[in-house]
Amino acid sequence: MNDTGAIRTGVLLAAGHGSRLRGSAPYKPLCPVGGRPLIDHALCGMAEAGLTRAVVVLGYGAEAIADHLASRDWPLTVDTVMTRDHREPNGVSVLAAAPALRGEEAVLAMCDHLVSPSLYARLAATGARGGTTLGIDRRLGHPWVDPDDVTWVRTQGDAIVEIGKLAAGGMADADAYDTGVFAIGPALFDALASLPAPSLTDGMRLLAADARAFTVDCSDLDWIDVDDAAALAKAEDWMLARAA
């Protein structure tokens, strides 16, 4: 972090296939919501939150997305890196950003998560705390959240005890949702690098076992994972409500 104590760099994962949104856009980061592509919402939201640089991790559709990024003037510096293989788990894409950070902490977010800029700001202010901090939402049953698709979290105080999908079992006593926004640092990269084909959840489990996976409550802030047509419709409604 810088001398003010707040993170100023974001990492945005934009490497995946996005097959469930293929009917709305050939590449998920370019899928329009409220008249703007998802990646535009994310980058402008990071800038509004006070971030001054974003490292965008590309993979599937990299050329088209890179062209889009190059065609616009952004309110923050935008750098791009390539994942080694977009077919591998998302932890591989996270690792691709490590050299660009040079050991600094960053706010990690998913390109397909439409979130209030205040969520980025809260994670930037909280920091990784020597491990990784995850923004969580305790509003279980929220109509914007697909319980079968979201990552669930079980907490003890502000620590993560367990994290995973319901389908994987063992999450019956989960008490929060994973919002997809993190404050990360070297500890997460070390955890991911120790695994052959890591997912972000795998890395968080390793940190949780070492008591270095933390949470910050973001239940008062809006977010939605735009990963299919139903979620896209809900996101459009949200944009209309905000505009009104």
Results as ranks from 00 to 15, higher is better:
Asp3Trp: 11
Thr4Gly: 11
Gly5Thr: 10
Ala6Pro: 00
Ala6Arg: 15
Ile7Ala: 06
Val11Gln: 07
Val11Ile: 05
Leu12Gly: 07
His17Tyr: 12
Gly18Glu: 06
Gly18Trp: 06
Gly23Tyr: 05
Gly23Gln: 14
Ser24Tyr: 10
Ala25Met: 01
Ala25Ile: 01
Pro29Ser: 02
Pro29His: 00
Leu30Glu: 09
Cys31Gln: 14
Val33Asp: 11
Gly34Val: 09
Gly35Trp: 12
Arg36Asp: 09
Leu38Arg: 07
Ile39Tyr: 02
Gly45Ile: 08
Gly50Gln: 09
Gly50Cys: 09
Gly50Asn: 10
Val56Phe: 05
Val56Gln: 03
Leu58Tyr: 03
Tyr60Gln: 11
Ala64Gly: 02
Ala64Arg: 13
His68Pro: 04
His68Thr: 07
Asp73Gly: 15
Trp74Phe: 08
Trp74Asn: 10
Pro75Tyr: 13
Leu76Pro: 04
Val78Gly: 01
Val78Trp: 02
Val78Met: 04
Thr80Arg: 00
Val81Gln: 03
His86Pro: 15
His86Met: 05
His86Thr: 00
Asn90Glu: 11
Leu95Asp: 06
Ala96Thr: 03
Leu101Tyr: 08
Leu101Phe: 09
Ala106Met: 07
Val107Lys: 00
Met110Leu: 12
Cys111Lys: 01
Asp112Met: 12
Leu114Phe: 12
Ser116Arg: 11
Pro117His: 08
Ser118Glu: 15
Tyr120Ser: 00
Tyr120Cys: 04
Arg122Glu: 10
Thr126Cys: 12
Ile136Met: 04
Ile136His: 11
Ile136Ser: 06
Leu140Gln: 06
Gly141Phe: 03
Gly141Gln: 02
Pro143Gly: 06
Asp148Pro: 04
Val150Ser: 04
Thr151Phe: 13
Thr151Trp: 13
Val153Leu: 01
Val153Ser: 03
Thr155Ala: 00
Ile163Val: 14
Ile163Met: 07
Gly164Thr: 04
Gly164Arg: 09
Lys165Tyr: 15
Lys165Glu: 12
Ala168His: 13
Ala172Gln: 15
Ala176Lys: 01
Ala176Glu: 01
Asp178Pro: 04
Gly185Thr: 12
Gly185Phe: 10
Leu188Trp: 01
Phe189His: 15
Phe189Pro: 09
Asp190Cys: 01
Ser194Glu: 14
Leu195Phe: 04
Leu195Ile: 14
Leu195Cys: 08
Pro198Asp: 07
Ser199Tyr: 10
Thr201Met: 11
Met204Arg: 13
Asp210Phe: 03
Ala211His: 14
Phe214Gly: 05
Phe214Asn: 02
Thr215Pro: 06
Ser219Trp: 06
Leu221Asn: 09
Val226Asn: 10
Val226Ile: 11
Asp227Gln: 10
Asp227Trp: 14
Ala230Gly: 13
Ala230Asp: 14
Ala231Gly: 09
Ala233Cys: 01
Ala235Trp: 07
Ala241Glu: 15
Ala243Trp: 00
Ala244Lys: 11
